[in-house]
Structure formats: structure tokens, C-alpha cells
Design a protein around this nucleic acid. Sequence first.
DNA 1: TTTAAGTATGGAAGCGCTTCCAAACAGAGC
DNA 2: GCTCTGTTTGGAAGCGCTTCCATACTTAAA
Lengths: 353, 353
Amino acid sequence: MGDTTIRDGKAAVRISDVARHANVGAGTVSRVINGSQSVAPETRKRVLAAVRELGYVPNLVARSLAANRTGIIAAIIPVIGYTQHAQVIQGLTEVLHERGTNLMIGASGHSPEMEEKIVGAFLARRPDAFYLTGTWHTDVTRELLKASGLPVIEGSNLTETPIDMVVGYSNFAAGRELTRLLALRGHRHIAHVTTKYEPNDRITDRLNGYKAACSEFPRAQQPIVIECENSFEGGAEAIALALKFDQRIDALFCATDLMAVGAILECQRRGIEVPTRLGIAGFDDLPIASAVVPSLTTIHVDRVEMGRKIAEVLLRRVEGESLLSHEIDVGFEIKERNSTFTKGEKRRNRSTG
Amino acid sequence: MGDTTIRDGKAAVRISDVARHANVGAGTVSRVINGSQSVAPETRKRVLAAVRELGYVPNLVARSLAANRTGIIAAIIPVIGYTQHAQVIQGLTEVLHERGTNLMIGASGHSPEMEEKIVGAFLARRPDAFYLTGTWHTDVTRELLKASGLPVIEGSNLTETPIDMVVGYSNFAAGRELTRLLALRGHRHIAHVTTKYEPNDRITDRLNGYKAACSEFPRAQQPIVIECENSFEGGAEAIALALKFDQRIDALFCATDLMAVGAILECQRRGIEVPTRLGIAGFDDLPIASAVVPSLTTIHVDRVEMGRKIAEVLLRRVEGESLLSHEIDVGFEIKERNSTFTKGEKRRNRSTG
DNA sequence: TTTAAGTATGGAAGCGCTTCCAAACAGAGC
DNA sequence: GCTCTGTTTGGAAGCGCTTCCATACTTAAA
């Protein structure tokens, strides 16, 4: 079909063209390009010259088929537009691009079923490794991935039972530490704002961390949990709900910065003083967290760095290196700012359970 | 190498296995799977049964090589973590996933040279089409893409000379219209805040739109241009610079919401009344724009929808449909909110020049 | 000089699929 | 019953590469 000509513009240069032009066999060209094995310096020079003259670009599809490895890594995140996940991907691509590996990406929309479908679709493309967000997946997803034998990293949280490996931090510990800190600083009735429509392991662990902290207080506060949409509007709504529920509430620990910032802005509209009347803390340390007035106390995780680390580990596994540990804890940091009672103290934590 | 066994888990089922199991030729299995041509209903049933029983998943790498099309679309955006671009990608993936096509993504970091490298790397993977952000690319990038003969869409702006197609809106018109509106509402000394380190076609066109509007005012205002880092902090800095430069400035049109929101928050810190003392307008309509106090007047573009449209057009082109137009204008909308003088009026615009 | 042990290279086989061609077959029309 | 047309099918060729094997050529040791 002349169609080929149209789709590809001028016909692409193949390895055999280069071989003929350099007066060597195709195998030799391949060896030069892949830098493997021994090729006489003189021959190598001739081949490279031919490559340059003909403008040869290897067809990686063919290479993938022949070599049984694609140089593609598959990543699935809930929503591409969410800063936290996008940052991980940013770190991933940075490292991958340097190493000639490319990223195939999919968005699950917070649905494990959707994730399962994407995993299935991606597997057919034979990526060399997988990155998944979170630790909640369908059984089928887990089975597919395990059966594939590919390196898999689940990110952004920790778990005892990873499919393969997990790189992240303890959302449980972070939630607990932040709650403890609020109490330590003098907040007495701390409510937790969690998300309504996007249940996932990270949000749930933060909630559980909060509950754990509540139960250990000397005066053993009853957990107060408010459910809202994960958005600025949801955070605004949380203010209304909290005040209606119990006037004594003097701090809101929101499971995401989105809600926390929404809450702060709502306080501004209502003339509620933060942190004097109401302390507000978030989670994620989005750029807006340090910009908003008052600046937001929150949990910081270097997600771009986490993405880089994930790439490193995955690539090493693809190279055949066996893994040292099934878990990499990247830790978290409490950023204590002006939206809660503070004493200007900073704390850094490993996720110690 | 027994290595293969390790990497792939249990050996994958191939098309020949299915063929044998269903007692047909490999060609027939292929025809059934691809739904092409005529296969007797009885045969089809047998094949599908075999596929199910063996759990056959086609190897898309092999298919790509044989069929000379990969079902992969390549996208390059400046930074994955920037909401605007991420939204486009979100829309893209949504449509692509439905159609069995997948997304390969790269981040250029606002560098045309980096973009060029990525284009080169991606071309080797033989994607069926390309999406690029913006209209500024190196000559080599343009050449590579044109020579490839692949469908290419440049997005988020318009241009007279696209590589192939362009889908977006006129940043020039948007910048001009917004400036006009500020003037119409009574702002008299309007400064423009542009970005310092990330020159690109969209930012530049917004600036030029602002200048064009300035020159048409009866009293012909001299453009005042302030350069800042594209961030909340940059926006805060813009306030300082503007007030120092000329106390008469009564409105800031910021080229991005990031800077505009930063400016609003800085005003809050300094006790500058918005919009009474200083009107502030942005561009992008990020989620924070409608949440901040006062809410931000800005330019809205439905970027997720734009991404969907890009996917649709690209897929149609890949199917061989010839394109109707080299340009698709998705338009923009001025969201007039409380950070500028308003009369509650709304305007919708096509990018009419 | 002979032999052994590399080193360099060409070329065939094969990766798992699509697609083309030819053959087999079925039914319609005469 | 025979030809003609159209449908269905098997199977070979080929997509562009990698990799293995065998061969040819070196060089050093004996």
C-alpha cells in the first residue's frame, strides 16, 4: 500500500541500509549501536559514519520485539491534574529520559476497576516495569502484575503486603504525628476533615493516624470526622459543618491541602481568626500552602524526588539487579506554619510505624 | 537465556497457540481479533473460546511492527506538574484509553532544545501522532516532525504557520480583551505582569495583546511591563515592584493565575484593598482563582475538553481521514470576578484575531 | 613452523504479529 | 452437471531488529 509512504513520509532508513553502506553485516551495526561486545575500532568508525550519513534512527519497536524488552515504563495515577501525582511523574520522566526509557501513562480516576483495565491494556504493550499509585488495587490487578513477573512499585504510601515493592511514606504516621503536634501546641478539640468521594489508602491511613493520636491523649478526645469533597469548596463547607457540630472545635486537620486552604479562605470570608479561634492544618504542602494567609501547617513530602527514586529503583531492577528491600521509606516532614499554634519548632520524621 | 522466564513470569500465550487450540491458522485468529474481513461465525466463536480459555493477550509490540502502527500517541508538555498542561493530558488520556490507544509523555521543562531531544527519542518509537505544547519549536523539531509525515497538533495557542495542525485559542486576543475589559470597567493605569524565566509563545502573545489594547485607548496608555518569576512568590514581588515604579498603577493584569493569586495574597498581607486600591486579573482560571478572597478575574479555557478534542482529531487523522482545517479555535471566556471593578457582566469570545 | 586461544564478523534464525496470495469450498445460475 | 462468482481459510512472507553460531583471522606461546 502506497499508504505506508504517506504515513511515514520518506521511507525510514533501516539497519540493513546502514550495513550495506558501511560494508558490514547487520549484526555488526547492531553491536556498534548497542555498544555491546567487541567491534574493531576501525569498523566501529565506519558504521558510525554510515549512521550519520544516512540519518539512521533505530526502530525501537523492532528492537523491542527482538530484544524482548521495550524500554517503556508504565505509570498509573488517579488524576494527572493533581499536583501531588503529577510531581511524582515529573521526577520519573526526568530520570527515565536520561536513560533512554520512556513513560506510558494512564489515569485511573480513583477507580480500582479502571486501574485494572489500564493495567490489562498496558501489559499488552510489554512495558519493562510498572508504577502504581497507592496500595489499594483489585485482586485481578495484583494477580496480573504478579504473573507478569515485572518489577512493580506502589507509591505514596507504605504497606506490609506490596505486590512487589513500595516507595513512599507512612500516611498513618504522618496523620498521627501532625495530630499529636496540634495537641502539643495547645489545640484541644481537633476535628479531622476527610474526603467524601475518593476513598483511598492514603486518605484512610491519615484518618487512622488521627484516630490513633486521639486515643492516646490523656483526656482521650473522641475523634470528630467530617466528610467533604476534596476541593477548595469542600474545605469551605467543612468550616460550616464543624462549627455547627460543636462550637468547641478549635482545630481542623484536613486530609488534603486543597480542603485546608479552602477552609482558611472560608474563615477569611467569615471573619474567623486563624489560628486564634481555629487552627487549620493540611497535608501535601502544595505551593499554595506557603503562599496563603496565614500560611498553612502541613505535611511535606518531596514527591519529585520520590519519582526520581522510583525511576532509579525500577531501572535497576530492569537491569536485573535484585532488590535490597521491598520497602523504601522516603519520610515526611511537618511544616509548621502560621495556621496553627506554633512555637517555631521544626520536626523531621521517619515513618516510624 | 532462562532470564526470559524470569522477566516474563510464565511464558506468554502466542497467537499460534490460540490458532492450534482452535484448529485454525494464525491468520484467522488475527482476523477475528482485529474484527477485520470475513470470518465464518462458527469459526469466530471457536477462536474467541480459545482466546478466553488460554487467556491470550495480543503482543502489541509485535502487532506494531507488523502493522506499521503502534497505537501510541506522543505528547510533550513543559512541566507535568502544571495544572493547565496536566488538564490537557487528562482529557487526552480519557479519549485515547477508550480507543485502545496509549499515551507516551515527556516534559520539556520549557526548553525547545529539550523538546527537540524528546521528539527525536519519541520518533524512534514510531508513535502514530504527536501533541506539542505551544507553537515555538526549534527548526530541527519542525523538520523532524514534518519529515515523519505524522499528524501533529500544537496546542494551547494559535499560529498562522503550524507544523501540521493547531488546537487552541488566541492568547493575543485573550490578553487584549481582558485588558480592554479592565479599562472599560474603570481601571486607568493597568500594568502587565509577565514571566521572567519561561519565555514562550503563550505568555508573549498575552503580553502583546495587552500592548495592543493599551495602544488603542483614547488616552493611549504607555504599557507598563513587570517581569517576575511565575509563582505565588513572583506575584507577591510584582506588587512591590509595581508600587515602587508608579503609585498611580491601579490594576495588575498578570499573565498567569499563579502570579495573580500571589499578588492578591500579598495585598492581603500589606493591607492593600483589592479591587478598590488595586485591581488584579489573571489568566488560566486555576481552581484557586475562584476560591481566593477576593475571587480572581481571569481567562478561562476548558483544557480538559481541549485535550479530548485533540485526541479526537488526532485519532481521526490516524484513521486516514483528511483534516478539514489546520486550525481549531476552542475559544476562551473571561471570568469576571471580584478582584477587579465589575458590573457583573459576562462575555464569551471566539478568538477573533 | 605449528598450535591454541582469543577476537572480529557475517549471516541465519527468530521475536509475534499482519497481510497478501492462492486454494478450497459453497451456492447460484444456466 | 458445469461454470462462475464470492466467501472463507491456511500459510508464507515480511515488519526491523537482536543474538547465536560458525567461520575467518590474529597473535602469542611452544
